[in-house]
Amino acid sequence: MDINEALIKYCLRLGDDAMILGHRLSELCSKGPYLEEDIAMTNISLDLFGQTRMMYTTAGEIEGKGRTEDDFAYKRLEPEFQNVLLVEQPNGNFGNTMARQMVFSVFYYYLFKELQSSSNEKLAAFAAKSLKETTYHMRHSCEWIVRLGDGTEESHWKVQDALNEIWSYRHELFEKDEVDETLISAGLIPDTATFKSAFEASVQEVLDRATIEEVEEGWKSTGGRIGHHSEYMGHILPIFQSIPRTYPNSKW
């Protein structure tokens, strides 16, 4: 695979992951469990949208066909989005939201740490900026998992259930295909296998503090990176694409 073609796809994947999770969190705006947490989750959402914009813009620049961040966000169809299934999963209860966030943030924390030293300047700068944000998202979600797990009887079983549900979705984050292989061998991105055990150890440390028993191992999520999504995705896209699709190219 041509390196530029792989780079475009890689940028879009990172952008799609951030955008769909950012959208999920934005659904909680004004619906958070209490005011302070409402703002915290909306802040995380905005950070993710910022990351999305950088990645979509970079993809458009490399592609060189004049596609903008808006084109990628609003004018693609479901099979063209290549985000992992993890980020599409519904917000559920607060435990579900934090469990999803923890898995996502810990993974991206390790990815960005390595991606900072990419020989591609754009990717390196993006990773350095995003690492700071992600470090905070990780701290926030991990601390909540600890408090929910080590909280009341109810919060404990709810977050245990949430982790059982979401844990199988981590596999996709470590999947590799032609896009990844091309960029890894060109030295542009890290091989996720190099930090898989560190990722799992970090999560385990949080689970131990949270007095969470072993998390159930089920199926292995797959499909998002080739555009095969869960049912949820079909409900997400119409919501944020409805305005630009109804009034194409309108300005305000």
Binding site: Y34, L35, E36, E37, I39, A40, H140, E143
Partner: peptide
């Protein structure tokens, strides 16, 4: 001011708010 469950979360919420 703000409401928070404990010191660490108060610090995080303060950062966000």
């Amino acid at each position: 001011n703000l409401h928070a469950a404990d010191a660490e979360l108060a610090l995080q919420n303060a950062r966000d708010l």
